[in-house]
Design a binder for these strands. Structure first.
Lengths: 193, 193
DNA sequence: GACAAGTACGAACGATCGTACTATTTTATC
DNA sequence: GATAAAATAGTACGATCGTTCGTACTTGTC
C-alpha cells in the first residue's frame, strides 16, 4: 500500500509550505484538500484530526530540516567551518519555504496555545538549541573556540542572529541583509575565539 | 459622544492582547465581542470590516509602544544609557502582553499575506528600525559610539537580540534568559564603542 | 422637549470550519 | 481473477466565520 504513503507525503509537503505562509493554525483542511486535489474527507482520513495534521506537518518539517540543514553540516569539518555551513544551510532551507522557516512562525503562533502541538514544537526547539550547543562544543574541541565559553549563550547568540535575518528577509527586500548577517556572524564567532 | 470612544478603546485593548496570543488573523469578531460583552454586530459597527479591525489594533499597539517604549527612552541621556533604557522598555512592554510583542507575531503572520494590513505593519517596522538607527546616531554624537559605525548594522544587531529574547522568553521558561540578553547586549555595545 | 446623531442589539445570510458517517473506488495478496 | 484491505469520495452535521439589515436605546444639541 504505497499509494497512501505517497499521497500523505505530498499532503505534508504542500501543508508545510502552506503553514510557512499562513501559520499552522490557518492551514485549513478544506484549503489543503483543494491544493492537493483531494476531497476534504479523503484528506481528513489520513490524519483523524486537525491537531494530528499540525503535529505531522511539524514532524515532517523536522525531518526535512534534519536532512537539509543538520546532517550536511555535520559532514563539514568541526569548528567554525561547520558553524558557517549550518548557518548557510539554515538560510537555504528557510528561503525554500514560501513563508520562511515554519518553526519560527509556529513559535510565534503557539507560544500561548497550550496543547499537544505546542508540546511537540517546544521539544523540537529544545533539540535545535541542543544541536547549536553541541556544535559550539565541537568548536571548542578543535580549538576554534576557547575552553571557557558558555555554550548556552552561544546558542542564544546564534539563534537570535537567525531570527533577525529571518524577519528582515521575509518582511523587507533588503539587498544588504546577507552582508549584515555575515558581519554579525563574524562578530559572534570572534567573541568566542 | 465619549461613550463610543471608550468602548472602542476597550475593544482595542482587549483585541491587542488577544492578537498577541493568537495572532492577528485568529482574532475573531465573535470572540472579541464575547470578551468585551458586546454583540457581534455592535462591535462590527465600530470597524466596518475585519481588515480595519486588524489595522486599528496595529495602530493602537503602535500608539502604546510609542508611549511606553520610545518616548520614555528619549528622555534618558543619549548614548548607551538611552539604548539600555530602550531595551528595558521593550522587554517590559512585550512582557505585559500575554503573547508577547504583537509586532513580532504579526511579522511572522503577515510576511506572506499581501494587503493593507501587511502594508501598515511594514511601515511600522521600518519606523522602528529608523528609530534604532537614530538612537545609534545620537550615541555617536555623545561619543559613546565611534564615528564610523554602520547604523543599519546596529539596528539589525539590536533587533535580532530582541527577537531572540522574545522567542526564549515566550517559549521556554528560562530563568537565565535575562542574563543572556544582558551579555549579548554588552557585547554588541562594546563592538560599537 | 424635539430631534438628530451616535451607539448597540438581534436576526439572518451564505460560506467555511472540523468532524462523522456511509459508499465507492483503488490497490495488494492469494 | 477473486477477495480483503486500503484509500478516496460523497454527504451531512452543528458551529462559527465575516457581513448586512432593520430596529431600538442613549446621548448631545437646538
Amino acid at each position: 500500500m504505497a499509494k497512501g504513503k505517497d499521497t500523505k507525503f505530498t499532503v505534508l509537503e504542500v501543508g508545510l509550505d502552506m503553514a510557512s505562509q499562513l501559520g499552522l493554525e490557518c492551514v485549513t483542511i478544506g484549503n489543503l484538500a483543494k491544493a492537493t486535489n483531494l476531497s476534504k474527507s479523503g484528506l481528513f482520513a489520513h490524519f483523524q484530526s486537525k491537531e494530528n495534521l499540525q503535529i505531522e506537518i511539524l514532524n515532517h518539517a523536522a525531518q526535512s530540516f534534519s536532512e537539509s540543514v543538520i546532517i550536511p553540516a555535520l559532514k563539514i569539518k568541526a569548528g567554525i567551518p561547520r558553524i558557517r555551513a549550518l548557518v548557510d544551510n539554515w538560510i537555504q532551507w528557510s528561503s525554500e519555504l514560501t513563508g520562511g522557516c515554519i518553526f519560527v512562525s509556529a513559535s510565534a503562533d503557539f507560544s500561548d496555545r497550550p496543547g499537544k502541538v505546542r508540546d511537540v514544537l517546544l521539544h523540537q526547539q529544545k533539540e535545535w538549541i541542543d544541536c547549536l550547543k553541541r556544535i559550539a562544543q565541537s568548536a571548542v574541541q578543535v580549538g576554534d573556540f576557547r575552553q571557557d565559553i558558555d555554550d548556552d549563550q552561544f546558542a542564544f547568540d546564534l539563534y537570535s542572529l537567525l531570527l533577525g535575518f529571518h524577519l528582515y528577509y521575509n518582511l523587507f527586500d533588503d539587498a544588504e541583509i546577507r552582508k549584515r548577517q555575515e558581519a554579525a556572524l563574524t562578530r559572534i564567532l570572534n567573541s568566542y575565539k
